[in-house]
Nucleic acid binder design. Structure first.
Lengths: 130, 130, 130, 130
DNA sequence: GTGGTCTAGACCACG
DNA sequence: GTGGTCTAGACCACA
């Protein structure tokens, strides 16, 4: 479970958002399988050098969203059928476009080209065995 | 100058960060040439439906960074030699990796695959690649 | 931490500039050591009788400049290695000359001589020279 | 009359304040003698690369203050007995102290020491034949 | 008209 | 409690 998630507390994206995206992404691409156990709140808080309350709040939010399941006294697990995305029809292009636009802006703002980004994505995909 | 920038005030990324990235990116890919005048603070504020102070704050920050130049009472312009990137060395891969990782997490969290993202990037590049 | 800074809101120099100069100077001459905690935004705002946003703006600018470090929810601190001066080269004489010229003009405009100013500087140096 | 004044339009001190201080200082230290003619508004505006309105406003303010005299159709002159400073008693130390403190803060903020400043003042005094 | 400064006060993220 | 973001609106300096 080590290094499953990476946070950048200096980035303007709130920590709890990075955390939630990271967990959902890990589930979406299979690094966390349905039923798998997550680290305890405290473990993850220590590993990420973040306040435990922040982690706990994310776990609760993901549980309410049907992505995680908590069994009292046992631990937190990926739901057997994690409710990841609504997947409502094919009209989700605008959403993807917005995500990509922001990402490309941030990259271009720091001097990276579209090719740089694509190359990096493919490199990342290999590591994660997408 | 219409539609130069797009904001999503609902996204967790602060408006002023989206704005700064958007302007830097527009300069980096040539949509804003060195010396070109930017929209006035009030114009851009109206166009993007945000407060004028928010725009002004970004302009000031970019002037401090050497990206923009303001002439009192005249307007705001792209610097003749915009200082876009620190370029402190060649060790910029971690920075790019972080940007891409966040983007991919956000995309995966919403059910998009790496291929979806790459496809969207190429589509975007065509539009503004001019 | 009392009396660390002095402001003159009637002087044409903007408050936030006086504040920034004051903090940088306090660090430069050791009254604020690397790692030391600064007053909270609200504390300093009350102490100096200015708006909290004005103080926050200065703290943010100094963090961007690498002079201060903020820890979310904890406070603001002098960076461990504060980036005080650009020191781009040895050609800093014009900068010093400009500062001194402005100061001497202001002093002369009010009837003080160069000797008056020098005497006052030495007196000030004794007080805070510690 | 060339180079009598120097402005820094990028400095936070408003241009009109720099201008007024500069003129008063030039009179105080004899570079502009009582009765001497000043450049025309337009000449000075061109020389300093500033809007003529700004220069004109300063001339008017200094005339109202009894420092300058305007003879219509002739030009602007230093008053025969320029009213430079109230010079009310010896209680002006706080004023001088404030000026010096701001100056020293600005200098220290950029990495200059009290000695640097004093040295520069003496150098300046020689040039101007104080 | 332009940008620049400051205030007052709301709401959010984090510890 | 900390700092961070945003709004609304006032007033100033400059062209």
């Amino acid at each position: 479970m080590g290094g499953l998630l990476t946070l950048d507390t200096r980035h303007p994206t709130p920590v709890y958002v990075q955390l939630e995206h990271g967990i959902r992404a890990a589930i979406a691409n299979g690094r966390l399988a349905p039923g798998a156990q997550l680290p305890t709140v405290r473990q993850l808080a220590v590993e990420l050098a973040v306040n435990a309350n922040t982690v706990a709040r994310v776990y609760v939010a993901l549980e309410r969203a049907g992505v995680l399941e908590t069994r009292r006294g046992v631990g937190t697990f990926v739901a057997s059928q994690p409710a990841l995305v609504a997947q409502k029809s094919g009209h989700r292009d605008p959403e993807l476009a917005a995500i990509v636009r922001r990402c490309m802006n941030e990259a271009a703002a720091r001097g990276f080209t579209a090719d740089d980004v694509v190359r990096q994505i493919k490199q990342l995909a290999v590591k994660q065995g997408g």
